[in-house]
């Protein structure tokens, strides 16, 4: 995985409104403009935030990506995707968008 390229994509999706809109319209078309591998594209399309972090992607970017663009923006689900154990899911607050 090209961590640098994936972080570039996620950063654009965090801060650029036009990129967010294009991703929402057709994520596969948006991602096609970058030289991402199939695995990387799949991780992004499926919001595999745990896999992204395992590959070294900065957690602030995965969280921002999830909060902005995931179909279900529940932070509880986000933490489940990261493999959080029960206690870790409980150690969580409504503070963070559910």
């Amino acid at each position: 995985m090209s961590r640098n390229l994936v972080e570039r994509v996620l950063w654009k999706l965090s801060v650029e409104r036009s990129s967010k809109n294009r991703f929402r319209e057709d994520p596969r078309v948006f991602l096609a403009q970058f030289r991402l591998s199939e695995e990387e594209v799949e991780c992004l399309l499926s919001f595999k935030v745990g896999a992204l972090q395992c590959m070294g992607v900065n957690p602030m970017l995965t969280m921002g990506f999830w909060q902005e663009l995931a179909p279900d923006r529940s932070m509880r689900l986000y933490k489940e995707r990261l493999g959080a154990i029960d206690q870790q899911r409980a150690a969580f607050s409504a503070a963070l968008k559910g």
């Binding site: 900065n58 957690p59 602030m60 969280m63 921002g64 959080a84 870790q88 150690a91």
Partner: peptide, 9 residues
């Protein structure tokens, strides 16, 4: 912890 599984700890 920001954006990780431990967030909230």
């Amino acid at each position: 912890w920001v954006g990780t599984a431990e967030m909230g700890r």
